[in-house]
Design a protein around this nucleic acid. Sequence first.
DNA 1: TCTAACAATAAGGTTTCCTTATCATGCTTC
DNA 2: GAAGCATGATAAGGAAACCTTATTGTTAGA
Lengths: 297, 297
Amino acid sequence: MLPELKVTQLRHFVWVSELKGFHAAAEKAHRTQPAISLSIRDLENKLGEGLFEKRNARTTKTELTPFGNYFLPKAKELIAHHDRIAEDMMLLSEHKTGHLRLASVPSIASRVLPDILLKFIANLPSLHVSFYDDNSDAVLKMVENQQVDFGICHLLHEQDHSDKAFTPIWEDRIGVVCPKGHPLADKQGVHWKDLRQHRLISNGTSRLLEDTEAHPLLGHSQFYVSNMISLIAMLEAGFGITTLPWYAFPKESTTLQFVPLEAPEVTRRIGIVKLNNKSLTPPAQALVDFILEQTKK
Amino acid sequence: MLPELKVTQLRHFVWVSELKGFHAAAEKAHRTQPAISLSIRDLENKLGEGLFEKRNARTTKTELTPFGNYFLPKAKELIAHHDRIAEDMMLLSEHKTGHLRLASVPSIASRVLPDILLKFIANLPSLHVSFYDDNSDAVLKMVENQQVDFGICHLLHEQDHSDKAFTPIWEDRIGVVCPKGHPLADKQGVHWKDLRQHRLISNGTSRLLEDTEAHPLLGHSQFYVSNMISLIAMLEAGFGITTLPWYAFPKESTTLQFVPLEAPEVTRRIGIVKLNNKSLTPPAQALVDFILEQTKK
DNA sequence: TCTAACAATAAGGTTTCCTTATCATGCTTC
DNA sequence: GAAGCATGATAAGGAAACCTTATTGTTAGA
């Protein structure tokens, strides 16, 4: 029914009309003159009307028919539309642009990602990044609901997440956090039983100890603080001690001390989680690759 | 640099994604399944990214990648744009639409064109027609200035209009117009000398006699009336007689009589005038063809 | 009148695209 | 759980679209 106009053909048409000649257009198209002649003729046949004034009687310069004149702006628009889309897609597939959404647990978000993201977006000025931080469960939910392209979190029960692919990256050692000057502060490592005689504040990460021999500590603890800012403030005030993964420990703290838990030695593995059956958008894949590369050494 | 996305390819892509399968899309495209596979692969290569989820592991229905998902609406838009333009041009080249402007001398405009135009536009409901009527000089001017696609008029000095193409159609015989019951009214034909004894009213068409042996009549005439309505009224009132071309004579007049001028026999040829170096728009060309066909017999 | 410029046409080669035939894989069904 | 069925990928050959070189025809200008 409707003819299929090829973009190449439209370009030829526009060039002939703008350069006022088949030879000039041929040169621009990196084709020979007969190729352009045929291309134009084919287009004319498809449209059912001549686009240029009778070309056998060369009384004058190559000129558009009224029909061709009517067609010209439309052809230009269509070409422009095509090019806009083609360019969009090229930029996207070269991850020079687009939209990237990720979620991360706060520890990595604050300690590791800033550096990496800064480097990553350095030469991608038009990439828009949406970033969420929350605890591991929430991050997993966002991955599941496809609210984010991928998540950075801990995968507690790996067998419950067969629909997701987990790529471990960071080994996060659990340790004891206490004020400097605290009896435990100068040790190289502590045994869980050492903690029983101190006031222990549990927090969101405490359940990492659940399946270890240190689990009795959890019952022992009177206080639970979910908010990290409050937790730090209480520790600094000498209210007690807590356990935290290394990456959740505020790096530049001058008042607190991190002492690795030696027995049991507990580490959580933090990594990238994505849905198994979905591939990532180009910029998301690029960021994943970049993170892997930056943390490989 | 930028790849050339073919509309056909985009259609294949949209169909595969909408029908959720290569076979279904192949059927819709009247192609075989491998053709669609190759088409899609080619498109993916051009864009630099996969559009559908890994197709080797058929864990699930054919599904878009995020990249493909991003591309889908854009592809649809581009196809729609293409089709819109293609349809526009087809309608225009089948003169089903568009704008047609013509000018005609009043005689043909009132006596011949109404019938023809009515038939012509009968099955072209969306064709817009602008119609002007004026004397031959004005019609020629409008053709020259390209205010109209073509004109219908008399070409008095053909040699002065080498830039125009004239296609004669109607032979318009000059005659004498007088009230019924007038001494001349019952004659089959009159000689110019017969007119000298009657009061002659000249009008816009009188100069057609200029280059004939009847030219002395023009000096003989005391009255000049340019407006046709007034002229008719004066004739009906028995004010005098006049000369008119047959087509300018009001056909259904019951009070006036047309008597051909026998000596000299003067005819003006009325026809279609267009610019030589410009071709007509499709609807204009169609109307010209239609007029020629309708008046051929 | 001759020449240069431009586009149309002809004939043959290349590339692109499509087809048939076949394969690999997973889902369904008994 | 093996057989059949459906899906899409792949291979190879052929058809169609496309481009090229060579040539012709027409017009404009020297």
